[in-house]
Design a protein around this nucleic acid. Structure first.
Lengths: 86, 86
DNA sequence: AGGGAATGTTGTAAAGATACAACAAAAACA
DNA sequence: TGTTTTTGTTGTATCTTTACAACATTCCCT
């Protein structure tokens, strides 16, 4: 099977929390360069690693990784707010 | 990184829809034996393959794959029903 | 300006995932 | 019953992911 490229919001969430790649790498238990490869989207994470990263951010996998290019979070948020007027 | 074993509900959802492994394999574009390996949990799917399979069933990845052993769907459903009295 | 931290790049090696083939076993069913 | 379909098993080959090292570049800080 030809693997599709998977996009991610790792840099967004990582920067937001003021984590270095090394910090995030430590949290999920991988080499810090592995985080670099993921952020540059040079390869896809394993499913296990994707779960670990999503868990660090407390988000569903789909919010961190997607087969389609990531919309800015501001858009996601806007769409969500206008749908549910809470 | 030592990969954790990932559990899944592929057999449940596949049988429910009366799909053979070959059928599901065709739908996601892998060899039918790959589905077998996944169902026996002999190895984890790539993130891409996990997305494809979840998409076939129209469910979030977390409902099909998990790092913890899968509860029977009846339990999941019960918990959900008693939380939200819809 | 200079030092340290964070990030990017390149290369090699090991582990994990997928394909494919061939055959065995089990299940469905005429 | 025997026949077909589905599933399991074993083995090999290839591709992808991860680790690790070494070095270059960029950024921040004072």
């Amino acid at each position: 099977m030809k693997q599709r490229k998977i996009y991610n919001r790792i840099p967004v969430f990582r920067n937001e929390r003021d984590l270095s790649r090394q910090d995030l790498a430590d949290l999920v238990g991988v080499n810090y360069q592995t985080i670099g490869y993921l952020e540059r989207e040079e390869y896809n994470p394993s499913l296990d690693l994707a779960f670990r990263i999503a868990e660090v951010f407390g988000l569903p996998v789909e919010m961190v990784f997607s087969t389609k290019p990531m919309k800015p979070l501001s858009e996601v948020l806007r769409d969500h707010l206008e749908k549910e007027g809470d």
